[in-house]
Design a protein around this nucleic acid. Sequence first.
DNA 1: ACGGTTGTACGATGGTTGTCGAAAGAGAGG
DNA 2: CCTCTCTTTCGACAACCATCGTACAACCGT
Lengths: 122, 122
Amino acid sequence: MPRSQRRVLTHPEADELDVLDVLHALSDPTRMTIVQTLRADPERACGTFPVDVAPSTLTHHFRVLREAGVIRQREDGNRRWTTLRRDDLEARFPGLVEAVVTAYERQAPPPGSATGGPGQPH
Amino acid sequence: MPRSQRRVLTHPEADELDVLDVLHALSDPTRMTIVQTLRADPERACGTFPVDVAPSTLTHHFRVLREAGVIRQREDGNRRWTTLRRDDLEARFPGLVEAVVTAYERQAPPPGSATGGPGQPH
DNA sequence: ACGGTTGTACGATGGTTGTCGAAAGAGAGG
DNA sequence: CCTCTCTTTCGACAACCATCGTACAACCGT
């Protein structure tokens, strides 16, 4: 029995999303970096995010984001692939994710971006 | 010496606002109700918000909002007046507060509004 | 001056959260 | 079958947080 059947990945329905849960999920730098990364890359495996925490901590953050309805996860072989639920979020909270991530990028450029923009270099 | 001089109400500068702090401040139903109320009424005294918590708890929530830069408070005689920092927030996080409050009102109509909209009535 | 109003400060408390390490499960490949 | 990789689960722990009651400070009437 494949892992995708063994453990059910619970995702809230699009019309069940709670904006307070979403805001709480986004008010953490690690989780925000995950969302930021997913906006650039549509789908990534769990271990490929530019965050600096232990694997078990990462699993915890993915669960928070998933149960808030921010991301969707699917299993494929050994990997777990993660996507941003852009359409569902946009339908229920128009402009929210756009505004949040844009605001965050201004103050914390995504890891790997060469220019830090007008941020304090020291 | 008036109270407005006695204790300094610390407000972050407009360019110091942290989007993660703002999101955290907004991810609480009591605080979101405060912001929601302030969008309708430009300025209110502390005790006039339609929330159901103890006064000391309310003070705590005002401090969280103030230190995140969401609200501004000024003293006048016995009262402490609270306003939303709309311009500062809009300049630094364009569209954010608008999207957040709009999303929240859809799922939790402001207290005192007659129609609950298409929400579950029971 | 006195009492009432408004709001804060402090301390306590129960619950939540972010973090990690160790152990284990599931799949891929030899 | 065995091993390696990817990811999860569990237990633990310290930090944080929302909440409250009590005490207190400032202001405003009378």
